[in-house]
Amino acid sequence: MVLHSFGPAENLVHESVPDPEPGPGQVRIAVKAAGVHLIETALRAGLSSGYMPPLPELPTIFGGEVAGRVDATGPGVDPGWIGLDVVTSGGQPGGYAELAVADVAAVHRLPDGLSHEAAVAMIVTGRTALEFLDVAALSAADVVLVTSAAGGIGRLVVQYARRLGARVIGAAGGPAKVAAVRELGADLAVDYDEPSWAEAVADRLGGRKVTAVLDGVGGDKARAAVGLLADGGRYVTIGNASKQDFAPDPRLVEERGLTVTNALLLLIGRPEQRPAYEARALAAAAEGTLVPAVQAFPLSEAAAAHAALESRRTTGKVVLVP
């Protein structure tokens, strides 16, 4: 799937290109699953900002999250890699293809029993969720409000917090997503597309307050979530799926002793920790400790996948399957 010009999802074109060849220190992967990331939809549209990667040179093939079977090795790479099932977050030129190359140093072997689709869901989304959770430093005593709780990261955060023993409120958009959050075991699942959702949460808590908001949405929904925080509570954000700017009022933060943390900025600053978190995420999925949700699209329908992700009509990790 090639992007020749920035713009709407339909600009992703399904076409044949020359097979990539692995260079020194690289392997080539016959792709079984490729992850789609929300940031890729912004880059495809030609948008960029301070925390995002620069716009790619065109034409380009997106898709850094790749799982499949090694079918060739480059110079200096042990040919024993050939035939192994692997996953990586460093596909080059990209995973939106039948073949992709990656640096062998960034490749993980798939744990036994883990599917290619689940591996792709965990290699970045799972890693990010674990990093996010480490920043949030939850405990069993917390009352946690998770926004975008039916999304790729949100689902894993809900599962983790429940296993920890915290009380979990999952907020998502629409009845189907709310039902999915309820099935994950959230103590309370609410539809934050309803105007009075925050009041409903406050009523159900019966005077108890939220101690931590883990937010990936931003905008008005984040503002309402922060309004539910107890004095001394913490707001940890990792994204802005709504594309609406939001930052808690500094005066409110000071008066109520709130802690505000932009986890995304922290995580960008420590890339050396990513391989260890990737391994942890893959192991957790293989053990069944964290179970990712996958919504698969055929590779040729990458444009539909982008459109669905942008309009927040997806549940879990969006994956392309050649």
Rank of each mutant, 00 (worst) to 15 (best):
G206F: 10
R127K: 15
T289K: 13
A34V: 00
E117D: 13
L47D: 14
Y192I: 01
E131D: 14
L145W: 02
F132I: 00
L188V: 12
V107A: 04
P75W: 09
G316C: 09
I153F: 07
V226L: 07
V213S: 02
V201H: 08
G239D: 07
T314K: 11
T259P: 07
A276E: 15
A121G: 05
G207H: 13
V236Q: 04
S311H: 12
A308T: 15
L266D: 12
G95H: 11
T315L: 09
W197R: 01
A189T: 02
I82T: 10
F246S: 11
P298M: 08
M52T: 15
A45M: 04
G154H: 02
P275M: 11
V107K: 02
S242Q: 04
T125Y: 02
W81A: 01
D215N: 06
V107D: 04
D134C: 13
F62V: 04
M122Q: 05
P298R: 06
A171Q: 14
L99F: 10
A161S: 12
V2C: 10
R313I: 05
E21F: 08
G74M: 06
L214D: 00
Q92T: 15
V31A: 01
A200L: 09
T73N: 04
A285F: 03
K317N: 12
R28A: 04
S139V: 12
S300G: 07
G170A: 03
P248A: 03
A225P: 02
G126S: 05
T41M: 05
I29Y: 03
K32I: 07
A302N: 07
A307I: 09
L252M: 09
A225F: 13
V87I: 07
L84I: 11
T125L: 03
E40D: 08
G227T: 00
L320P: 00
S48H: 14
T73Q: 03
G170V: 00
A281N: 08
V253F: 05
R274M: 13
D191C: 07
V13D: 09
I238L: 15
V226D: 07
